[in-house]
Design a binder for these strands. Structure first.
Lengths: 153, 153
DNA sequence: CGTTGTTAGTTACAAAACCAACTAATATGT
DNA sequence: ACATATTAGTTGGTTTTGTAACTAACAACG
């Protein structure tokens, strides 16, 4: 119906397609894949994505400072700062200042936080499995590898 | 960085890794791949990502209504509404109401808009090529295919 | 020492995204 | 016909993010 321009739908005027533009494709795939999982941790724990990321890092890699989370998760320090405050308010983590350098404080999950992490990690694994259900082992391996490379992880 | 498998004291090691969690991986890759391109259209045209998406759809697929953009780009109507207003203010598109149903209006790029699209599309193709530089043809094909599937495009 | 610089983290304010309510035009059902 | 529902799109108020300035603790060097 909308054909008042010179680009007829379905016909290529150039080869710059959706499927040919990787950033677009990656964003759509990322959004699609995050949607249901996000609904889960938002609904069950009232967490934002930033909070889930921080919880994830502490749960998976152990206690560390906010700075370390910034570096590992590539989040800006203000984002981390606010996420940490929110998680602390939810009693999911505690802060303990260093004695030899009081600028730092180690962030560690409480048992409540670990419980939430365990739940979300299990759920996450399930989401992941469902997502990869119709890929072969080899395809899955290649996909992950490619993404790690693009993400420069 | 160290990919050492360490667990917090008293906790069990699990296999829920960064590299094993697809939504996380996709988000990181998407962010990484969008960064430099975003800087380009933001710097040169003062566009937001939403505006670029709308411009992209109109430039690539021809004139259409806001609703069609919502559906194709999976953007919420408020986002599209505001992006359209911004692009109109920049003289990148015009609106023409339908005569038989005045709820609709066809959005079409102006020559200025088409010029911006041509520039950004060319730039985008380059970004894409650079991104895929160290993948084989076969890997690239597989990656795109997998992303299309995950994104349900 | 003290001046300057650097690092970790917070806060304040502006930009953008999100959600819900709204208008206006058309479709539908009785 | 007329009340009700639906559809396209906008607007308002709140939440979340982004940017920059800020504090506090330490480091480095004169």
């Amino acid at each position: 119906m909308p054909k008042k321009d010179e680009a007829p739908p379905g016909e290529t005027v150039d080869d710059f397609d959706l499927r040919g533009f990787l950033p677009y494709l990656l964003n759509m795939a990322a959004e699609e894949s995050s949607a249901s999982f996000q609904r889960y941790y938002k609904g069950k724990y009232g967490m934002l994505r930033t909070e889930w990321r921080v919880l994830f890092h502490l749960g998976r890699y152990g206690a560390m400072t906010a700075k370390e989370i910034c570096d590992r998760a590539r989040m800006h320090k203000t984002k981390v700062s606010r996420a940490v405050a929110a998680l602390q308010a939810k009693r999911f983590l505690t802060r303990s200042p260093w004695e030899d350098d009081r600028r730092h404080e180690t962030l560690a999950l409480t048992s409540q936080g670990r419980q939430a992490y365990a739940d979300l990690a299990a759920q996450g694994k399930q989401f992941d499995r469902a997502l990869m259900a119709d890929f072969s082992q080899e395809e899955a391996r290649l996909l992950r590898q490619a993404l790690v490379r693009i993400a420069k992880l």
